[in-house]
Design a protein around this nucleic acid. Structure first.
Length: 217
DNA sequence: CACTCGATGTTCT
DNA sequence: GAACATCGAGTGG
């Protein structure tokens, strides 16, 4: 146990606290970049540096909650720090983290991470060796880190799935339209956040949005 | 190398 | 039928 005499007993490897998530969803989406997603389990631990997120907001036609509460999206209404895992196309899983207080359905989709721990395990689960193919997509990272519906409605502030402080955003952050949404789903809203220099993005940042902050290839 | 297409199960749009 | 995705096969520069 921690034996410090006074003050908060937090250290670099402690999960980020609930207060981190209980803020404006766009702010949290940006600030998750550069933090580390950790998955602990008996088979071994895996970890990834968060490099890409997307915000899904209230009255957002792209959100699963845009037409109200259903059995699937109910974790989105369950308060800050709630894990929302959904199955897409019946076969893949995507990881979201809820931000707003209970009753307000906003969440952040984790779209890509950079592998930083448990690489052997990730390669096994993904059936691939190339680092860039392990976690460069929302359903790739859940496969690599063994994230499925068993974690749905869980708590992102404690094991077996949580976030710890990483280096944060050191390089430029790119803001772009979200991926995979139709014209009637807010396809143009700038709610995708990326570490612009990362090699592990799910898709390239649109060239039109990549100017100023890019040093030069 | 870029692009297209079909197939894969579950949920709700 | 389409969806916040991925993979592999096929086609064409």
């Amino acid at each position: 146990m921690d034996a410090r005499p006074n003050g908060p007993t937090t250290s670099a490897s402690d999960p980020l606290p609930r207060e981190f998530y209980e803020r404006d969803t766009v702010t949290v989406s940006r600030e998750l970049l550069g933090q580390i997603l950790v998955r602990t389990e008996a088979a071994g631990n895996t970890a990834g540096l968060i490099v890409e997120t997307e915000a899904y907001l209230t009255d957002d036609p792209g959100s699963h909650a845009s037409r109200g509460r259903t059995e699937r999206n109910s974790p989105m209404f369950a308060g800050p720090g709630t894990i929302y895992v959904y199955q897409i196309y019946g076969i893949h899983f995507c990881l979201n983290i809820v931000t707003r207080p209970a009753g307000i359905a906003e969440a952040i989709l984790i779209r890509a991470v950079e592998p930083v721990g448990g690489l052997q395990l990730m390669k096994q689960r993904r059936g691939r060796r190339e680092l860039k193919e392990l976690t460069s997509g929302p359903a790739k990272l859940t496969e690599a880190m063994s994230i499925d519906l068993s974690l749905n409605e869980g708590d992102i502030t404690r094991p077996p799935l949580y976030v710890v402080a990483g280096a944060g955003t050191q390089g430029p952050v790119a803001v772009a339209p979200r991926i995979g949404l139709g014209a009637d789903q807010g396809a143009d809203l700038p709610l995708r956040f990326c570490l612009a220099d990362s090699e592990y993005l799910s898709r390239p940042i649109p060239s039109a949005l990549r100017g100023a902050s890019r040093p030069r290839q």
